[in-house]
């Protein structure tokens, strides 16, 4: 009986050691700070952009070009990207009537916006920009409230088929911090102060942000460009 009790005591001691060690490791992993941070307000070098002026979707000969300045953590940008853009893409971009240019404008009040933009830029290296772009917007409610958004972006990148080794190196290096800053500087120079901001053929658009309004705008600009 005494031997059994001693055995049980040893068992519970060992059980407690494993439980405490396991919980300590998981607790550390859950509370450690995000390892990826993309610096803001960096000095933009010529090599940061190398002629880059946004991510482009659509025909190079389309009569109308819309440039969007947006922030991945901005809720209105998310609604626009997920609800309106699919229709705009199907109706206007895929039919050769519109070319879309997306530029980053991460707002200061959104702590993960710059990391999100950088994540998409790193996916772009592997030809997965628009896939990652879509996943980041669609998952905004998941990562915006997370403590480690970078890990969620990494998960999206993996699901998009991005090579995570190269992606990780790109993120750790903050390789595109300058390019994101260049986008933001370009937006500021044009008077962008909120997101999303659209420029249609270079002019600030002040209308409604829905696919029907954008279609009317494109139709109107296309008519003028052919006159």
């Amino acid at each position: 009986m005494a031997a059994t009790q001693a055995g049980m005591k040893r068992f519970y001691s060992l059980f407690a050691v494993i439980a405490v060690a396991g919980l300590a490791v998981l607790g550390y992993l859950l509370t450690r700070p995000a390892t990826v941070s993309i610096p803001a307000n960096v000095t933009v070098q010529a090599s940061d952009t190398s002629g880059f002026t946004g991510y482009v979707k659509g025909s190079p000969t389309a009569p109308v070009e819309i440039t969007e300045y947006a922030d991945y953590q901005c809720p209105f940008c998310q609604t626009f990207a997920t609800l309106q853009m699919p229709t705009i893409e199907e109706r206007l971009i895929n039919t050769g009537r519109l070319r879309w240019r997306y530029r980053d404008f991460p707002l200061q009040q959104h702590p993960f916006a710059r990391v999100a933009a950088h994540s998409a830029a790193c996916a772009d290296e592997q030809g997965k920009y628009w896939d990652q772009h879509r996943r980041i917007y669609e998952g905004q409610s998941e990562w915006a409230s997370s403590r480690n958004a970078a890990a969620i972006f990494r998960k999206y990148a993996g699901a998009a088929g991005v090579d995570l080794g190269r992606y990780g190196a790109c993120m750790q290096a903050g390789k595109y911090a300058g390019r994101i800053q260049a986008d933001q500087n370009a937006g500021l120079a044009l008077g962008v102060s909120s997101t999303p901001t659209l420029l249609a053929n270079g002019r600030l658009y002040k209308g409604r942000f829905d696919s029907d309004a954008i279609t009317r705008l494109v139709d109107s600009l296309a008519r003028h460009s052919t006159k």
Binding site: F11, L14, F15, I18, A19, G22, V25, L26, L29, L30, R32, A34, T35, E142, W143, S146, R147, N148, A150, A151, I152, R154, K155, L164, G168
Partner: peptide, 25 residues
Amino acid sequence: AALLSLTGLFISAYLYLYKLGRIGS
């Protein structure tokens, strides 16, 4: 069995937390 199950529980929890995007890589 109890000690092994506890170990397995921590391994699974680790992988699940990764899937939730809570612990990085």
